[in-house]
């Protein structure tokens, strides 16, 4: 292993841990909140089973607004909110707040898109068999859209990794922050390149897993 990696080994492991924490919590937020929000966006659409203009436009506007913020500004803008929830606006835990919010907005849009790909007839068949809304969602929609939901989550996770590199501004740490502070600002270009390589490997790995899983579960 190159000397420079050995010298900074502890810091590198720590920053990898910080990145994984930030991204991991974002994934949880995306699945626990983004999935339901995306499903609601889909169901409340015009002509769909829960058609509701108010809910749809509100969620739609909210998701669009969050997604239109340049991410750095969103982080700064959310500082008072983060302080309210976490008690501080600095550190890895604090960084997960803006990351989770963008994660929810990002994934909910992809969920909506995947659900739109489910043939309308499948939902009709479900309703004709007397399925309740909950059954339509869990026994038909998610089953039929599952490969799209996995691919969407894969795309989202990779975006979360990219977003997480900005979190240095609020002391969130992570690989990106380490690469900037040590590699760029302290003129250790080789260290910066090694960090980039680590991120490339991480992204490749996630994409590989996502693509493989989605292919295996797709029987269409």
């Amino acid at each position: 292993m190159p000397d420079i990696l050995v010298r900074y080994e502890a810091e590198i492991w720590q920053s990898i841990g910080e990145t994984l924490t930030m991204v991991g919590i974002s994934i949880i937020a995306a699945v626990l909140v983004g999935l339901p929000v995306g499903t609601l966006l889909f169901l409340c659409r015009r002509g769909n089973i829960l058609e509701n203009r108010l809910v749809f436009s509100t969620l739609n506007l909210l998701v669009n607004t969050i997604r239109s913020f340049p991410f750095l500004l969103l982080v700064v803008f959310l500082i008072p909110f983060t302080r309210l929830i976490i008690g501080t606006a600095i550190g890895t835990a604090a960084a997960t707040v803006p990351l989770s919010i963008i994660a929810i907005a990002h994934y909910s849009r992809l969920v909506e898109q995947s659900l739109l790909d489910v043939p309308k007839g499948v939902m009709e068949a479900a309703i004709s068999m007397g399925a309740s809304i909950r059954e339509v969602i869990f026994k038909f929609l998610y089953v039929e859209a599952r490969s799209g939901l996995v691919l969407g989550l894969t795309t989202s996770i990779i975006s979360f990794i990219s977003y997480s590199t900005i979190m240095g501004v609020v002391g969130g740490g992570g690989i990106g922050d380490f690469a900037i502070r040590y590699g760029y600002q302290q003129f250790m270009t080789d260290l910066m390149i090694y960090m980039i390589i680590i991120m490339v490997i991480l992204v490749q790995l996630i994409q590989f897993i996502g693509t493989t899983v989605s292919r295996i579960i797709d029987k269409r």
Partner: peptide, 9 residues
């Protein structure tokens, strides 16, 4: 239905 509407998965 005309297009069967089975759950493909």
């Amino acid at each position: 239905f005309q297009h069967f509407n089975l759950v493909a998965n």
